[in-house]
C-alpha cells in the first residue's frame, strides 16, 4: 500500500536515492518540476513507461497538490 509522505520525508528519501515521478501532463513538467524528477503522465503510466525506473528502489509519485 502506498505511503503518504510530507516534504521532510521526500527530502530524506531523495538523499536515500528515491526516484521522483511527476504524473502531470508533460507541458507542466517542462515548466517546472522537482529536482531530478522524471515525467510519466498518469495517462501514460504503464509497464513500458515505468520501465526506465528501478522497481526495487523507492519511488515517489507527485502532482501539483491534493488533486
Amino acid at each position: 500500500m502506498p505511503v503518504e509522505v510530507n516534504r521532510t520525508d521526500v527530502l530524506r528519501l531523495m538523499d536515500e536515492g528515491a526516484q521522483l515521478v511527476e504524473v502531470l501532463p508533460p507541458a507542466e513538467y517542462d515548466d517546472e518540476h522537482l529536482p531530478g524528477a522524471v515525467s510519466i503522465p498518469l495517462k501514460e503510466l504503464d509497464a513500458s513507461s515505468a520501465g526506465s525506473l528501478d522497481p526495487d528502489a523507492p519511488v515517489i509519485a507527485y502532482c501539483f497538490d491534493y488533486q
Partner: peptide, 24 residues
C-alpha cells in the same frame, strides 16, 4: 492524481511506493 499513480506503480511491481500529496 498522485494517489492513483502511486497505486498504479504498485500494481506494476514497485515494492516501495510513496505519494507526496503536497506536490509541486
Amino acid at each position: 492524481m498522485s494517489p492513483r499513480a502511486a497505486w498504479r506503480l504498485e500494481t506494476l511491481g514497485f515494492k516501495e511506493v510513496y505519494e507526496y500529496r503536497g506536490g509541486k
